[in-house]
Structures are given as structure tokens and as C-alpha cells.
Nucleic acid binder design. Sequence first.
DNA 1: TTACATACGGAGGATGCCTCCGTTTATCAA
DNA 2: TTGATAAACGGAGGCATCCTCCGTATGTAA
Lengths: 194, 194
Amino acid sequence: MSEKDNPTAARKVRADAERNRVRLLETAKIAFAEKGSGASLEEIARIAAVGIGTLYRHYPTRDALIEAVYRNESEQIMAAAKRLAEERAPVDALREWLLLCVDYMAVKHGMADALNSLVGGTSDLYATSGVQIKKAIAMLVDRAIASGDIRLDIEPLDLLRALAGVATIATGPTGTQAAKGLVDILIAGISTRR
Amino acid sequence: MSEKDNPTAARKVRADAERNRVRLLETAKIAFAEKGSGASLEEIARIAAVGIGTLYRHYPTRDALIEAVYRNESEQIMAAAKRLAEERAPVDALREWLLLCVDYMAVKHGMADALNSLVGGTSDLYATSGVQIKKAIAMLVDRAIASGDIRLDIEPLDLLRALAGVATIATGPTGTQAAKGLVDILIAGISTRR
DNA sequence: TTACATACGGAGGATGCCTCCGTTTATCAA
DNA sequence: TTGATAAACGGAGGCATCCTCCGTATGTAA
């Protein structure tokens, strides 16, 4: 009875379950970074010394795993958005934030890829990270619009998608450079003044 | 001896080989349009009523097949670029051409996808179609730069990549709209005047 | 008509996806 | 401490796909 009334205290999470979850997460982080978001799930399970079934129980879909891996990064990006919004002029904040995203995509090779998975695709997997990122960019964009510095006819997220499009393909320093250049172009393109 | 001196006349292409090549091409065109560039090669072979081995002989890699399928489209796009360059003011020509590309991506669902394969990725598969597209956009961009209407610090191809990035994810009318909106932003972003 | 270069086709080995279910084990109450 | 049991484990198995390899069939030229 008391258990039914207080479902959060139901039963402690089994220690082995938690252990495996963490190991999977760490292994996946490395695998995705190395091989992009298409890395083999069976290999991840193998390296984590865990059965494939265990992987699927913890993370029922590839996207669930991707999201878990990048949740941390997403939160950092989100935090950065908040900080920039407070410290910088609207347009600067937006520019800096986009550049930051490019860096993330560069450092975590495969992050661009992952961002695509999170942010795009079929609606029913718009999970928390995706929503967070969406909120972050919407906040920055709205602020810049309110200030009258920019106008934007497309969905804010599409700015990120464009960046991801470039970063996904051209990896390495060249790609990063290209993506950063694109940031300037985009900012200039949505500015109402020069 | 004479054959060695004139290798082009070596031996006529076998009729059945040519037949199969064409059938594969047509089947693949449909399959890619329907399922994107990830369509199953085995299924394509099956529908074309050809052994899988035959498919791989004609087109050793997935990208080879993709390129062959879209070579025609690439040539049309190339031709359009030439025509626009003659008929329109530099910037207009570039804008119209980019919009045209978006339409291509939209109509041939999976074209954006395919464009990515052709235009990006590992350098050693930059085959003819990729080069053609590269030339087309370079020509339009150079012309607009020469006229002093735009400046561009990034590789021209990256404009296309950005469009593809958006179009790949958000398919359907919404995606097309977004991609077209992005064209305006990009043009505005690289313009030197308003 | 013959000989052979050329092309065909699919079996086969490898990998990956995901589900299902029999077995094991951590936890909790007695 | 000792069951009882819910929870978690793990991997076999069915299916799809990739790509290679090689024995067989066939179009072409002499």
C-alpha cells in the first residue's frame, strides 16, 4: 500500500543496472565521437562488456542512446545560451552562440550528426535535448527580433540545421572554418541593419 | 596490334550488358526517389531482374550508382546555371539557381540526400557530377563577385551544403519553404549592398 | 562455327538490427 | 540469514543488407 502511495520509493535501482547504464553511456560517447552517430550498437555493447539485450533495455532506440550521450553537452549549450543572453547584445549573443555550436560540432566529431538526429527527423522523437536546444535558439532569436536587429522568416532551428549540413560533411579544420564563415553570412543575412 | 594502338575500338560493348546497365539505372532512379539514397541495392537488383553481382559490376559502389542516376539532373542544373548567367543580373542568377536547386531537392525526394553524397564526403569520389555542380556554382558566384555585388569567404559549395542540410531533414512542403527562406538569407548575407 | 573475352547471377560469409525469453541476481521482508 | 520475487541480464535467432568470388552462360569476332 505505502509503496503504491509513494511510487518514487518503490524499490532501489539495482546496482548492476546502474553500473551497466553508465558503462554503456561512456562507451557510446567514445564510439559516437569516433564513428559518428551510425556506430554499431552491437559493438558498443561488446566493448561495454554487456549483452546487446541490456543495451536495448536501457536505451530502446538508437536515438535514445544518442540523446543520453549528448544530454550533458546539450545542457552546456543551453547554459551558454542563457549566459550569453545576459552578457551580450542580442545579435552578438546569437552569433557567439552559433559559433559555439560549431565548436561543439567540431570537437565532438559526430556531434553535428547527432544534432541532426536530435533536432530533426520524425516528430515523435523530439526528446528533451532536442526541445532544450530549440528553446535555447528560440530565446536568442526572439530577443534579437525584439530588439529590431534581425528579422527571420524561417524556423530558428533551420539556422542550426544549415550549420550542421556544412559541418557534417566537411570535417576537420576546413569544415569548422567553413561553418564559422557561414555563421557570419547567416547573421548578416538576417540583420536589418549593417 | 592495331587494337593495342587504338584501345577505344577494342570490342563492342555487349548488348546484354548495356541493356542491364540501363535497366539498373532506371530502377535505381525510382528507388532513390522513393526511399532516399539509402535504398537497398539488393532490392534494386531484384526489381531490375538482375543479379546482385551484375549491379556491383556496373556500379562498384553505392556512390557510383547515385552519381549515374543523378548525372542527368546534374546536367540540367548545369545547363540552367549557364542560361541564368546569360539572362540575369549576377545576383539574381545566383538566387534563382539556388532556388532551382531547392526545387530539385524537393521534387526528387532524396536528391538532397544524394547531393550530399556527390558534393561532400571523401575526396576520392568527387566524380564528374560533383565537379560539374561545383563548376556551376563557382561560375555564378565568381560572376557576382566580379560585379561587386557580393563577397564570399567560404567555399561556394558550402552554400549548397547548407541548403541540403535543411532540405534533407525537413522534407515535404515545409522543408522546401524553409530551404527557400534560407536562400534569401544567404543571398542577403553575402550581398555587399542592400 | 568455333573460341574466348565478357558478362551473368547468386551462394556465402560478414555485419548489423531488434525481439524474445530462459536464466541469474540484487533487494527486501520475515 | 534466508527465501521469494521483481528486476535485470545476455545472447540466440530471424531478418535485412552489404559485398566478394567464381563457376556458368552468352554475345562477338574471326
